[in-house]
């Protein structure tokens, strides 16, 4: 039976009529029209549906929308501020951290969580952090470079990171 859920998404309160079985990924896309969150595998493997729940990266295909009530949800649409891309979005653009772009929103949301925990991750730490995000264009090299560049920007350092 449908019920009204009230979700805090990208700082705004949104409501939707959903069944308890509705997955957060579907409600974001189909009810709230936030189609930046992608659905790849629907089996918590690929990470394309990653969003932030109270600042932590979560696969929204493995969370019920009703579970998200009372949480702060951030999707890829919520990262830019006043028309300025988030440093990770900017870095994915500049470093060409994508080919087809399907995995990109999830990659970026996971990287937001990583950089909040670790402002200067090594290449190994970045690769471990994005282990739950699949890029089937095999473009990981530039994704790692983009996350390193964004980390440097967020630290206020020069974008080129010294080799470690």
């Amino acid at each position: 039976m449908k019920r009204t859920v009230s979700l805090s998404v990208n700082g705004a309160t949104r409501t939707a009529e959903v069944e308890p079985r509705a997955l957060l990924a579907h409600v974001l896309r189909d009810d709230l029209d936030l189609t930046g969150t992608h659905i790849g595998c629907d089996t918590s493997q690929c990470g394309a549906c990653t969003v932030l729940i109270d600042g932590r990266a979560v696969k929204s295909c493995t969370m019920l929308a009703v579970q998200a009530e009372g949480c702060q949800i951030t999707t890829i649409e919520g990262l830019a501020t006043n028309g300025n891309l988030h440093p990770l979005q900017q870095a994915f653009w500049e470093k060409h951290g994508l080919q087809c772009g399907f995995c990109t929103p999830g990659m970026i949301m996971t990287a937001v969580d990583l950089l909040a925990q670790n402002s200067n991750p090594s290449e190994g730490e970045i690769r471990h952090a994005i282990e739950g995000n699949y890029c089937r264009c095999t473009g990981y090299q530039n994704i790692v470079a983009a996350i390193q560049a964004a980390a440097a920007t967020l630290r206020g350092a020069t974008p080129a990171r010294a080799a470690s």
């Binding site: 918590s44 990470g47 990653t50 729940i53 932590r56 990266a57 979560v58 696969k59 493995t62 969370m63 996971t110 969580d113 990583l114 471990h128 952090a129 994005i130 282990e131 739950g132 995000n133």
Partner: peptide, 9 residues
Amino acid sequence: IGDLQVRNK
């Protein structure tokens, strides 16, 4: 266990 997102939840 799992991956970063799975460990978060």
